[in-house]
Simulated scan of single mutants.
Amino acid sequence: MDTPEAGTPSPDNEIESLTEFDAAVAAGSLAGRRVQSVDLADRSAALLATDTSGAVFLGCRMEPAAAEKVRAEGAFVFPPVPGLPFDPYRGLLYTPDALYDGLAQGGYEATPDAHAYRWFCRTRSDGDVFSSMLRALHDDAVSDALDELLVGTRVVGVMGGHVTPRGSASYAAAARLGRTLARSGLTVATGGGPGAMEAANLGAYAAPHPDAMLDKACELLGTVPSFTPSVTDWAMAAFAVREQWPRGGGSVAIPTWFYGHEPPNPFAGHIAKYFANALREDGLLARSTAGVIFLPGAAGTVQEIFDSTTPNYYGSRGEPSPMVLVGRDHWTRELPAWPLLRALAAGRPMESRIALVDTVEEAPEALARLSSAQGAADG
């Protein structure tokens, strides 16, 4: 299992690490607590000696005597599910190292990410209620961990096509955008895949480093432009960049095994990977509280534009959040989403929260301007 990182603590009643468990035991009680995916096999003495009435243990490995005792006290025990390539009760988000464990030794097909995708492909349409329940438990746990991570942060979503190749001018521009946004104090969130999504996460990763680092990283990555034909080579190139420039800046990726043929990019510090694409799409946009920047893309990006438009149109999430579309020709001629968006916004509060710009370089200023309008309305 992943080890927890320093950062936002769990809610008071949730225990997601052995450190938190030991602290609760030292305080004298586990009553009513929720212990989530913590290996307690060597904590039998503590479990036997501590009040666990009303506690809930989700996927915690225990010795039989300890499990019998806590059940007798009225605790609920949801045991680990054997044979799964993922933990449905996980208390933390994924990391690139966790999803790509074993990459160097056995290639991508040997990684936990690939194993989970194969399990999903086997079970997605078999009608087995147990499999669908496990997927739902996992995705709810991921949402909970994501919300805990993002408490108090200003999140900007960056959406764009997965086909943007490394080494291209568009890729480099998206990477510079991610760096600019991260340096302004925003948390960059993407769909977590390759292409423009990877570029934005790479830019956030590069934010603490000198400017020349990003140029060099883009050059190195350009030797493996795409995840086809080899995900292994594509991912190894990214990890080589991370190894050469460690301690990069943080960002969030929210991919899905629904599109599992697209691997998650390794540049986000935290990866909230879902089985259900609908939860992933809505969750990504809903958490982009500082607005969303839409780079040129195809059907998926168009869907995200109007998934974001609907709550802004109806005000179902409060005041509309900023939306910046990048690429005037793309969004007015090739895929004319902008005329429809502008027509929908006319006369509504969201009218002052949308913008169309020609270039990626203009997007941060446009976002800041729309954010000022949003802040004035909120005030």
Rank of each mutant, 00 (worst) to 15 (best):
N201E: 10
A207R: 00
A199L: 02
A199C: 04
T187L: 13
V163R: 14
S184F: 06
G161V: 03
A189V: 14
A204I: 03
A173D: 15
V158R: 00
R154E: 15
N201T: 04
G203D: 08
L177E: 09
T164M: 07
T153P: 00
T180Y: 02
V163W: 12
G195C: 04
G185H: 08
D211C: 04
D211L: 07
G191M: 07
P208N: 00
S170Y: 06
S184W: 06
V156H: 07
A212F: 11
Y171Q: 05
L177C: 12
A196Q: 02
G185T: 07
T190K: 03
M197P: 03
R166W: 01
L202F: 07
A196I: 03
A204G: 13
Y205T: 01
P210D: 12
S184K: 15
R166L: 01
G195W: 01
G203W: 03
G157R: 13
P165Y: 09
V156T: 12
G192K: 15
V156F: 07
T180C: 09
A174M: 07
G160E: 05
G195Y: 01
G192L: 13
P210Q: 08
V163Y: 10
G191P: 11
G167L: 08
T180R: 10
P165I: 09
E198S: 12
G203C: 10
S170G: 14
A174D: 05
A182S: 15
A206K: 00
D211E: 14
E198Q: 12
Y205I: 01
A169W: 04
T153I: 02
V156L: 10
V155Y: 05
E198T: 10
